[in-house]
C-alpha cells in the first residue's frame, strides 16, 4: 500500500441482491506487470474487472487508482488510463471495422473535434499490429467471432492506455491468434512498461505469460503471488477441484499443467 501502486483494493465486496459475488478483497497491483486472473466459472473474475474499470461500484471498501479513489475520476479520464477488451462483442448496427477501432480514440478526441492525424495514426497502427488492416472496410456484422474479437483488441490498442484489461479476450480465437494477442500484450508490458490484467481460463497460457497470478474462488482471493510460486498442483486442486500436475516444459521454457477430473 504505497504511492507506487497502480490499484489498491481495501476490504472490497460486491453483491447482486442477496448473493455475494466478491468478499473481503485486499490487493495491491503494481505497474509494469502481466497479471492473470484465474478461477472457476462464476467466481467473480468479471465483476472484479468491472470494479477496476468503474463499470460497477463496490458495496463496501475502497478502490484507489494511482492513490486516488476510483470514483473521483471522470469516465473520460479513466478511459484514457484503462482499456477493456470485453468478452462479448455485439453491435446492433453495422459499423465498419475501422469505425469500431476509431471508437477507441473517443476518450482522446474533444466532443466537437474530428479525429486528428495522431488519432488516425493510432488506429492504423493498432490494425496493423493485430493484422486486420485488410478488414478495415468490412462491416462488423459480417465478421466471424474471431475476427470481431481481434477488432475489439485493436480498438483497445488504439485507446493507447497504460493499463489493459482482458476479459477472456481470446475465447473465440484459434491457437495462432491467441498466442499473437498474448505476445502483443507481453511486449506492451516488457517494452513499454504497461500493465495487463487478464482473465484467463487456459492455465497453460497463464503459466506461460503471467508474471503474477491471482487465484479466485467463490468471490474471495484464494492465492496470489508470482506465477512461479503460485501455479502449483496444490493451488489448482484447491481452486478448481481437479487433480493437477505441473511440469517444466523445455520446449517453451515454462511450466505446463495437466489435469485429471476427480471422480
Amino acid at each position: 500500500m504505497n504511492n507506487a501502486d497502480l490499484f489498491t483494493l481495501r476490504d472490497v465486496s460486491f453483491a447482486y441482491g442477496p448473493t455475494p459475488v466478491l468478499q473481503d478483497v485486499n490487493l495491491s497491483l503494481v505497474p509494469g506487470k502481466f497479471y492473470g486472473l484465474i478461477g472457476p466459472n462464476g467466481c467473480g473474475k468479471t465483476t472484479f474487472l468491472d470494479l477496476l474499470t468503474g463499470c460497477k461500484k463496490q458495496l463496501t471498501g475502497t478502490i484507489d487508482y494511482k492513490a486516488k479513489e476510483l470514483s473521483h475520476y471522470s469516465k473520460k479520464s479513466l478511459a484514457q488510463q484503462l482499456a477493456l477488451v470485453p468478452q462479448e462483442f455485439d453491435t446492433g448496427f453495422g459499423f465498419t471495422v475501422e469505425e469500431i477501432v476509431l471508437m477507441g480514440r473517443h476518450p482522446h478526441i474533444d466532443r466537437f473535434s474530428a479525429p486528428s492525424k495522431q488519432d488516425w495514426f493510432f488506429v492504423d497502427q493498432a490494425m496493423k499490429c493485430i493484422g486486420i488492416t485488410g478488414l478495415r472496410d468490412r462491416y462488423t456484422n459480417s465478421l466471424s467471432g474471431g475476427q470481431k474479437q481481434r477488432a475489439v483488441v485493436a480498438r483497445a490498442l488504439a485507446q493507447n492506455a497504460p493499463v489493459l484489461l482482458f476479459d477472456e479476450a481470446t475465447s473465440s480465437l484459434d491457437v495462432k491468434y491467441t498466442l499473437q494477442i498474448f505476445n502483443i500484450a507481453r511486449k506492451l508490458v516488457q517494452m513499454e512498461k504497461r500493465t495487463v490484467i487478464a482473465v484467463i481460463h487456459n492455465l497453460n497460457l497463464a503459466a506461460a505469460y503471467c508474471d503474477y497470478s491471482i487465484f479466485m474462488k467463490e468471490g474471495r482471493i484464494a492465492q496470489h503471488g508470482p506465477t512461479a510460486d503460485t501455479m502449483t498442483a496444490e493451488t489448482i486442486a484447491e481452486v478448481f477441484d481437479v487433480q493437477a500436475k505441473v511440469v517444466f516444459d523445455p520446449f517453451n521454457q515454462t511450466r505446463q499443467v495437466s489435469f485429471q477430473y476427480f471422480e
Binding site: 463499470c55 479513466l78 478511459a79 477493456l84 470485453p86 473517443h106 476518450p107 466532443r111
Partner: peptide
Amino acid sequence: LYYGRDLNIMSLGRRSSDTLGVE
C-alpha cells in the same frame, strides 16, 4: 447531435461504452 458520438459508442453495449469514456 451533442451526444451523437456517445450514442454511436453506446451501441457497443454498456461495458464497452463505459470503458471508452461515455457516461
